[in-house]
Amino acid sequence: MTLTIFSFISFTGQKSKFSDIIKSKMYFKTKLKKIPLSLVKQENTFFYFTDENPYYFNLLKSSIAKLGILNPIMVQPFEKKYYRVISGFRRLQIAKELGFTFIPARILRENLSPSEILTAVLLSHPHPLSLTEKVRIVRIMKDLGISTSQICTRFGSFLEIQSPHLLEKYIRLSNYTPSVLSYISTHGLSLNQALAFENLSSEEQNLLISLGTCLSLKGYDFCNILKVLKEIETKEEKNVAAILKETEILNVSKDVKLTRSQKIDKIKKILKMKRYP
């Protein structure tokens, strides 16, 4: 059933037409229901793919404080009277922080397969998917055993990933650590810019994330600096981590006496002298 629905989505490209499916008995035990927060005992984060962003979290919290929860969470029953959260983790956290005792929820059937649960979660997602959210979804699909060809042909239009070549890039990104994906998301790197992290060690990735975070480096500046670092790596046969440490670039990025633009200019000059002595 899941793949049949997504086959139709891949032809139409319209998620909005499936609101009736999401609300139907196909996936849900009951219509919208308010459940006591005290009965929500578990969280199933396997299907969690949403970007973490403190700014948007605070916006959501302000909205919920004024208007309540307009988009119900998604839960599944267990042990007869309790519920585990499948989707809506931030809304649940905010409800607890605001002292709510009940929360609106859609209750999934107990006998759904993981693929059917993923279908329900995706079709009820209210916002356009970001690059890193698509990456996490691709990883979930691969973990569920959905083949590359099925992702392209059945899910491609929904995810806007319709060619095997493009999907292969997302699969490569799906191997990144959560901290790398978080940086890609918060600093707006494109798909091709995000691939610059590939073939770097965990230490090198962490050092670059630290550098990029200190300087709020967006995609263009980040990739230019990394490009020069890799050129120096080839020239001197030293890894990126060693180059960052011996040039004291990281110390420059933390110098409180310099403005952001002064730090970036100084780092570029250091790298240029290292690359072209």
Rank of each mutant, 00 (worst) to 15 (best):
L3H: 11
F6W: 09
S7I: 03
F8E: 06
Q14R: 11
D20R: 12
M26P: 03
Y27H: 10
K31F: 10
L37D: 08
E43K: 15
T45A: 14
T45H: 14
Y48V: 13
F49H: 14
D51F: 06
N53G: 06
N53K: 09
N53S: 13
N58F: 14
L60S: 13
L60Y: 05
K66I: 12
K66H: 08
K66W: 04
P72W: 14
V75N: 12
K80L: 05
Y82C: 01
R84V: 10
R84Y: 10
I86K: 08
I86A: 12
S87K: 15
F89M: 10
R91H: 12
I94P: 11
K96T: 04
E97Q: 13
E97H: 06
L98M: 06
F100K: 06
F102A: 09
F102T: 13
P104G: 08
A105P: 14
A105K: 11
I107D: 11
L108M: 04
R109Y: 09
S115L: 15
S115K: 14
L118H: 11
L122M: 13
L122C: 08
H125G: 05
P126N: 04
P126H: 11
P128S: 03
T132G: 03
E133I: 04
E133S: 08
K134G: 05
V138C: 15
V138R: 15
R139S: 15
M141S: 11
K142I: 15
K142F: 14
S149I: 15
S149P: 08
I151Q: 08
I151D: 07
R154S: 09
G156S: 05
S157Y: 04
F158I: 10
L159F: 06
P164A: 11
H165R: 13
L173R: 10
Y176M: 10
T177V: 02
S179V: 02
L181R: 08
H187N: 01
G188L: 00
N192A: 00
L195R: 03
F197M: 02
L200F: 03
L200Q: 01
S202A: 06
L215W: 02
G219Y: 00
G219C: 00
Y220L: 00
D221L: 04
F222S: 02
N224M: 07
I225K: 06
I225V: 08
L229F: 05
K230Q: 10
E231V: 11
E233C: 03
T234L: 11
T234Y: 09
E237I: 00
A241M: 00
A242I: 00
I243P: 01
K245P: 00
K245C: 00
I249N: 05
I249T: 08
I249G: 04
N251H: 07
S253A: 13
D255R: 04
D255V: 02
K257Y: 00
L258E: 01
L258F: 01
L258P: 01
L258V: 01
S261K: 09
S261P: 02
S261W: 04
K263R: 14
K266N: 04
I267C: 08
K269G: 03
I270E: 03
L271H: 07
L271E: 05
K274Q: 12
K274M: 09
R275I: 13
